[in-house]
Design a binder for these strands. Structure first.
Lengths: 207, 207
DNA sequence: ATCGTCGGCAAGCAGCACTTTCATTTTCCC
DNA sequence: GGGAAAATGAAAGTGCTGCTTGCCGACGAT
């Protein structure tokens, strides 16, 4: 079994190499890469690499673009993301980008090995086993969710200031019930769980 | 040699334990902890622990407060920070907080072993070897409202991610009631009306 | 020993947030 | 004209938020 291990942290790579050598009985070969460019070069140079354990956050390329590049360079590679992030949206996005597996770094070594085996069987493996948001649609506009209506944007503009539904209703001359409905639609569109997350996201995206 | 290894990433701990067992000839004993509280408990339970390899960013306690707590719990412990961050100001601050060593995770295993040996001799060891800013004066916290307690800052750090009280309680291992009380205190201290405003303010202030 | 601060837990309650369902009206496009 | 989307409103229900009050223990300073 030929494994690509891609992580910019040499300490982590050294450690995981030893873990793999410890837990994989035989026939193991580990190829290392410290960034996405090296990882892509490695899989191009050696198509026998069966599985990639890829950190999400490495220098030189944005995480999901790097994943995409890997997938394109080696369509048959079993991609497993190994990441410090356990954010369900990261997990969702990694799977949508083509990863067959996602292993949070708080997982145990045995979980990782189990994940490798599962993924090599062609099945999906995710740790932590969280409820994932639905598959994100292809983003029409990466900065602004295109599907917010004009009125929703009005409401979001006030929500991001931390105003309550009642205050928003008064300021926009609406019934509070209507504001609630807009907020529900906004949360769904933005893929967040509550107004606080929506406010933070809106601030980030400059909405 | 008894080593405390504190990192919330089990994969990293497993790997580094194997690295240590591989490179330290004999007499090695490794104690693991997944967060600062466990780390403090470990050094209290076993004063023979000579050196701690401590990740900066672990859940449950702010990084430097956690370092401070460790230093107070075990004044003779040789503290070595092992962190993904290679930011000179983090390095500076760790040293100012009492760490004798700082090892970035991109360092090699051999560099880490060298660091351990250096620190056990009482000398400072820093990788990457960067120019450090001068020692920071006692924190004036011009950006941070001075009256937030350490625990309130923990809670605020999670609240600003849009987490619910229940989630915060679970993540910090508290009763939800306790989280509510912290949130109430936070809102009063920050002079805001609701958690959304607090989250926005915290993001702005980089809390 | 006392006091102040901090952290933790609990109960109770009012009000808010969010979801779901139903409905109507308006506007725009085919 | 018909259909779809958007805007608006109502109601019911569940769960969350925030506040108030009370209690306890630990720790450090006086």
């Amino acid at each position: 079994m030929k494994v690509l291990l891609a992580d910019d942290h040499a300490l982590f790579r050294d450690g995981i190499r030893l873990v793999l050598e410890d837990l994989v009985p035989e026939g193991l070969e580990v190829v290392e890469a410290c960034d996405f460019l090296q990882a892509v070069a490695a899989v191009r140079a050696d198509p026998r690499i069966e599985i990639g354990l890829i950190d999400l956050h490495m220098p030189g390329m944005e995480s999901f673009a790097g994943l995409e590049a890997l997938r394109r360079a080696a369509p048959d590679l079993h991609l497993v993301v190994v990441s410090a992030s356990e954010d369900p949206s990261d997990i969702r996005r990694a799977l949508d980008t083509g990863a067959l597996g996602y292993i949070g770094k708080t997982s145990s070594s045995n979980a990782m090995i189990e994940g490798i085996r599962t993924v090599l069987l062609g099945e999906t493996f995710v740790r932590p086993a969280v409820d994932l948001p639905p598959t994100l649609p292809a983003p029409a506009d990466e900065q602004t969710p295109a599907r917010l209506t004009a009125r929703q944007r009005d409401v979001l503009g006030m929500l991001r200031l931390g105003k309550s539904n009642k205050e928003i209703a008064r300021d926009l001359d609406l019934a509070e019930i209507t504001v609630k409905l807009h907020v529900t639609a906004i949360l769904r569109t933005l893929g967040v769980e509550n107004r606080t997350q929506a406010a933070i996201l809106a601030a980030k995206l400059g909405l």
